[in-house]
């Protein structure tokens, strides 16, 4: 594998000073970007970790007091609510997005007319800001003026849909809006996967007498395994980072009913002046994502056939 990877140009050793500059020029060009990333990403992460071990409140205090803020973090009922919501939101959001995305991709893949119309309709929410999505859905689900009122106007007087202001149900409105926003993208991923499957394999399966259903269940869907993996990674990442959607749709409420770790971190850091607790929650979020992403990146980068 070494030769395959290292086939790019390797300059001969430099002899004159001009040549030496020439040999170092590429690294010199890359250096500013790398320095920015080192400082603003890795330096800042270390800084945040450091702050999480202090007693910082409104302003940073650089005196290490140990795991104090982690104890305080896990003593907060709010934090547990955020974790619980994350679990509910994450599992539903990821599960439904994948199911819907796969269904849409399979439907679109049936040699239908008007693919060029349907596909962009399913995908366009991905171009919108979560704030716009949240605003639109907040209006659409508004109990007084939105869907509920429309149903009443159509004669379904008993129809009730107050999830947006119902503490027990509000988290599901975030699932709905989130799925609406990203499932089209999941569809695009699956569609690309479907289109990448060798047609001869499917012809062979037909000759072997497999029904359409059997072909999908036994051959196509198992072959889409890498797409499932990618979709889960991307959606997990979006789940943990979700902030805008909650702010725009429910603002974390009613009460703390839709609190997520991201909103928790923000409010503890910037409005409740508990910087060290906010930092501790950010560290937990980072570690959760890292646990998912690092093995994924490692496997993609290590295998040259895949990572290149």
């Amino acid at each position: 594998m070494t030769i395959a990877i290292d086939d790019a140009y390797r300059p001969p050793r430099a002899s004159s000073s001009g040549d030496r500059l020439r040999a170092f020029l590429p690294r010199l060009v890359l250096a500013p970007s790398f320095a920015l990333v080192l400082f603003f990403v890795y330096g800042f992460i270390l800084w945040t970790i450091y702050l999480s071990f202090t007693r910082s409140r409104l302003m940073p205090i650089y005196e290490i007091v140990g795991f104090d803020s982690y104890y305080r973090l896990f003593a907060q009922p709010n934090w547990y609510k955020a974790l619980e919501n994350l679990a509910i939101f994450g599992s539903l959001y990821i599960g439904i997005s994948i199911l819907l995305g796969l269904t849409l991709a399979i439907l679109i893949d049936q040699r239908i007319r008007g693919e060029g119309v349907f596909r962009p309709i399913y995908l366009y929410p991905m171009a919108l800001s979560f704030i716009v999505t949240g605003t639109a859905w907040k209006w659409f689900l508004n109990p007084g003026l939105g869907l509920e009122k429309t149903m009443h106007a159509w004669g379904w007087q008993s129809f009730q849909f107050d999830w947006l202001i119902n503490s027990d149900m509000a988290i599901y409105t975030i699932v709905i809006a989130g799925v609406w926003q990203t499932s089209g993208f999941v569809m695009a991923m699956f569609l690309a996967g479907l289109r990448g499957i060798d047609g001869e394999i499917l012809k062979a399966a037909q000759i072997d007498g497999a029904s359409s259903f059997a072909i999908y269940r036994r051959i196509v869907i198992p072959m889409l395994r890498p797409v499932f993996l990618s979709a889960v990674i991307v959606l997990t990442h979006l789940t943990i980072k979700s902030y805008d959607l909650v702010i725009a749709l429910t603002g974390g409420g009613p009460g703390n009913a839709t609190e997520l770790p991201s909103t928790f971190m923000y409010s503890y850091t910037f409005t409740r002046n508990q910087m060290s607790v906010g930092a501790a929650s950010a560290v937990i979020m980072l570690m959760t994502i890292a646990a998912v992403i690092i093995p994924y990146l490692y496997s993609e980068l290590k295998d040259p056939g895949h990572g290149r």
Partner: peptide, 13 residues
């Protein structure tokens, strides 16, 4: 990896 970090982890610094 920098693409994937939750930005909350760099917000305070």
């Amino acid at each position: 990896f920098a693409c994937f970090i939750p930005f909350q982890s760099v917000l305070i610094p």
